[in-house]
Amino acid sequence: MIAAAAENDALGKDNDLLWHLPDDFKRFKKLTSGHKIIMGRKTYESFPKPLPNRTHIIITRDKNYTVAHKECIVVHSLDEAIDLVKEEIAFIIGGGEIYKQGEKRSDKIELTRVHGTFEDADTFFPEIDEEFWMLTKQEFHPTDEKHKLSFTYLTYIKKADALKSL
């Protein structure tokens, strides 16, 4: 899974991000380029066009939903999406409900923790339970002329004994 979430786990409001962090966008692009990205329909529809150099797997309950881009595949469940990635590296990119479902199926979380809270958010990342997840890397990014908020890149790996219990 890959996400940017505030300290209160806020992800967005009205199908949009709550902040603008250019360096986080660059990191997202670097990590996900060349891979499959799994998302809910609303997340897909928040993009002006499909993201380049990535296969989009879009989850929707709507059996009639179609997308007219060759780099997009429509499925109707997270299980169906996971079946399409087999042993490949793939990223679950949202939204909130897809993250909740995906946590059990994921082995790694690349989280950008945005230092701030957003009470008016309507979409949230699941709380990371450190009983199941181990923080393996962190890198702080201070505020600057392009970033009004500071943030920290966090990498979590699922603990081996957690694979059975989640």
Rank of each mutant, 00 (worst) to 15 (best):
M1K: 12
A3D: 07
A4K: 01
A6V: 02
D9V: 00
A10F: 03
G12H: 05
G12I: 06
D14I: 01
N15H: 12
N15F: 01
H20M: 03
P22H: 03
D24C: 00
F25I: 05
F25W: 03
R27W: 02
L31M: 11
T32P: 13
H35D: 09
K42N: 15
Y44Q: 08
S46G: 08
P48H: 11
P50G: 12
L51Q: 10
P52Q: 05
N53H: 13
N53L: 06
T55A: 01
R61I: 07
D62P: 12
N64D: 15
T66E: 15
H69E: 13
K70G: 02
K70Q: 14
E71Y: 04
E71L: 02
I73G: 06
V75P: 12
V75W: 10
H76Q: 08
H76D: 12
E80G: 02
A81Q: 12
I82A: 03
I82F: 05
K86D: 12
E88T: 02
E88L: 07
F91A: 02
I92F: 03
I98A: 08
Y99L: 04
G102I: 03
D107F: 06
I109V: 08
I109N: 08
I109C: 08
T112W: 09
R113V: 03
V114C: 08
V114T: 08
H115G: 03
G116L: 01
F118D: 01
D122F: 11
T123G: 14
F125M: 11
E127V: 09
I128T: 14
E130D: 13
E130V: 06
E131N: 14
E131A: 14
F132P: 04
M134F: 05
T136S: 10
K137S: 07
E139D: 13
F140S: 12
H141V: 09
P142T: 04
T143V: 15
F151W: 14
L154G: 00
Y156F: 13
I157W: 05
K159Y: 05
K159C: 04
K164N: 13
K164W: 02
S165F: 09
